[in-house]
Structure formats: C-alpha cells, structure tokens
Design a protein around this nucleic acid. Structure first.
Lengths: 210, 210
DNA sequence: TATCACTGACTATCGGGTTAGTCAACAGTC
DNA sequence: GACTGTTGACTAACCCGATAGTCAGTGATA
C-alpha cells in the first residue's frame, strides 16, 4: 500500500502523470463525449492546468486516441479467460456467457468505452477498427469454434448459428446498452436477464418432442 | 408527386420551413453529434443562413429536441405493425423478428437515431426516456405477451425468457450496432444473421431428444 | 406600396493551443 | 548540514479562430 500524504519526488510524479492524465481523460470523455469535453476539464480533475496536459500530449485528438488505446487493454483479458474454459461445449458456452456479462455488461469502464466507440466512431474510424480486431473478432472466433465443435461432437444441432455465432452473445450487448441508457434511473435485473439468455440459447422457445 | 421547379408561394414556403429545418438538423446532428454540429451547417443544407433557423427555433438545444421528437414518429409505426400479426405464436414471432430487422436494423434513420440516443443520452435524459416509453416498452410488452400466450397454449416451453422477453430481439440491436460501427467498411450479411437468430430463438443449440 | 421572410454583419464568449516566467526539488560544494 | 546554482514540471496569461445568438436592413411577394 502506498503511504498516504507522502509527497512524491519529482521523478515519481512525472512517471505517473501520463497514467493520471489518461485516467482523467477517460472520465471526462466518457461523461461528455469528445467535442463537449474541454482539455481544461481533464486538467482540473488532476488539480493541474491545461498547459500540463500539453506537456504530455500534443493535441486533444492524440490525448483521446491514447486514452482509448490505454483503456482497451482489459479486453485482451476476456480473450485469455475464454481460452482456458473447460468442460462440455454447453458448459463452456454457459461459462463464456457468464464471463461476458461479468467482463462487459458489468464493467463500467468497458460499458463506457463501448458507448464511446459507437458515439465517436464516425470521427475516429481507427478506434472502431482496433475495437473490432482486438475484441469483437477474437470473441466471435472463439464462439464460432465452440459451436462447430459442439455440432461435430453431436452435442449441438446442425444449425445456422454456426455461420453467425455472434447471435449467441447479442443479449450481452443488449444488457450493456440498457445499462448505459438508464444508468440507475431504471432497475435492471441482470441475473434474470442472463438466465433467460442462457436458457434461450441452449433450449430455444419451442416445446421439445413437439 | 410535387411539381419540380415550381416556385412556392411565401405562405407555402413558410409552412414547410420547420419540417425542412428538422430534416436538415437530423442529417447534421446524426453525422456529427450535438456539440460538433454548427447551426450554420443546418442552414447551409437548405441554402439559407443561420438567422433563418433562429426565426423558427429559439436555441440550438430546442432545435435538437424538436428534431428528435419529429424523428421518433416512425417508431409508433412498428408498434402498429406488431399489433396486427396473425398465425401461430411461432409464426407471429418469426414475423415480428423479420419486421424488427426491416424497421430497425435496415432503416438508416432509425439506426442513426439510436446512435444519437446513446451518444447524447447523458445530456438529454428526456430523449432517452421518451425513447423508452414510445419504443422499447411497447415492443417488450408485445413480445412478452406473445411468449406468455405461447407458453399457456403449450406451443412454447415454460421458460425464463417469459420474464425477460427482450433477449428474443437482442440480435436485432446487435445487427443495428454492427451496421452503425462499420457502415459500408465491412460486409454484413443480414439475411444469414437473421436466419441464425430465428433458428436459435425457436430451437436453441442443444440436440433434441438428447 | 406594405409586408415580412430572410439576410449577413455584428457581439460575446468559449476553448484549443502557446509560451514567458516561476519555484520547488535536486546536486554539487564547503 | 547549510548554502547555492541549475533544472524542469508546472502555471497563468495570452492569442486567435470558431460559433451561439442578435438585429437593423433588404427585396421579393401579394
């Protein structure tokens, strides 16, 4: 644990600044969007002035992009978690869905980042593309592989889902956006939602043996 | 059809202006977001100047809100379409899903409006709430009623989906956001996606009689 | 010719980016 | 351990282009 109240040396402070600035930038940009965020607001969050920000980042634009790069890191975490799942295909699918709720819908930072990608995507196509390559594609691939494995082992039906595996996790996105839209203004029972999701995905709606 | 090139009377022109302005505002606000859109850009789209806009709307803020109110109208259309579906529950569900793709994922205006709601929601909570009341809630209610009917008629399994019917249409949202993110940069086969969606929702992944 | 929808030049303000200047932290000397 | 010169992270005041909102004037229409 860091000692509280200890004044940092100049070198220490300088080493921490970029981190701190990106952190503050994340809060401001996600709260207000790119255009409506002032560099001064980011600075104020740290108790420094605008000039300081410009010592570390050349423009507002580059600050934004650096922030997004920084904050995308947790995504690779999800990829790693998916890789080590064990059990039958349906067990692994269950676990993957649970993991997706935990790491995406439930993580405020990831939620806000997703909103940012969608909201500012038109102005920052790099961001959208990195987002796809680092996050969406690997997850889709993992799910696709899982479904194909289940089909060839006879555990899953031969189904059109194999060619569009993304539909399996759509409710996670749905939950994420509901939480983004309503924050705490409207209650959202995620457990119920997730159980419905898993049940639907495995069993479907139709009565069996009908 | 309106005659082309016919000059409108002053009264006609004046009567049309608010419509025209809202239309132009929609294009600009959805393309650039609220903060980055200049009132002058909206005016330029009509070949008029900024002053004209302010003859019809007192502030940029009110222009934005009026635009959103105006553009929300097509949503009620979807509600009406859902109400008149016929056939068995699964037939109606299929039809409803198809309709959702057609009216939401495939409609550029609705897509952009959705992005706007998400992007600017923090600054315009009225907008989010109206969006929920006019669109999300009625659709969720309709789906919920359909599922309950199917369950009690024995056509559908007694399932957790009944308490979170939104999961049934999540892939529509997913498709909408993919199209928003990648516009035309990445191909998206909606037919395949939709077929996978319907198959999943009705039958699930697991092998039957297993 | 009277009206009024529209113009376009104007003001006030805001915010990205710059830079001369400040002062606490450090290093070297005694 | 005190004294002193140097460094460099940070500040504060500034510049300037951009944009929300205003209003006296204009010219086509009825």
């Amino acid at each position: 644990m860091e000692k509280i109240g200890t004044k940092l040396s100049r070198a220490e402070q300088k080493a921490r600044r970029p981190q701190e600035i990106l952190e503050a930038a994340f809060e401001e940009f996600t709260a207000n969007g790119y255009a409506a965020t002032r560099v001064e607001d980011v600075a104020a969050r740290l108790g420094v002035t605008k000039g300081t920000i410009y010592l570390y980042f050349p423009t507002k634009d580059e600050l934004f992009e650096a922030m997004h790069r920084q904050m995308s890191a947790p995504f690779s975490d999800l990829r790693a978690s998916v890789a080590v799942l064990e059990g039958s295909c349906s067990e692994r699918l269950r676990a993957l869905v649970r993991l997706a709720y935990e790491k995406v819908a439930n993580d405020r930072r990831i939620r806000e980042l997703l909103r940012l990608v969608l909201a500012e995507g038109a102005r920052f196509p790099h961001m959208v593309d990195r987002h796809y390559e680092e996050f969406i594609a690997p997850v889709e691939d993992a799910i696709g592989a899982l479904v194909r494995e289940g089909v060839s082992s006879g555990e899953f039906r031969r189904t059109a889902v194999a060619v569009a595996p993304a539909v399996l996790v759509s409710p996670v996105l749905h939950a994420t956006f509901l939480r983004l839209m309503f924050a705490d203004r409207r209650p959202f029972d995620e457990t119920t939602f997730m159980e419905a999701h898993i049940d639907l995905v495995l069993n479907g709606l139709l009565m069996r043996n009908g």
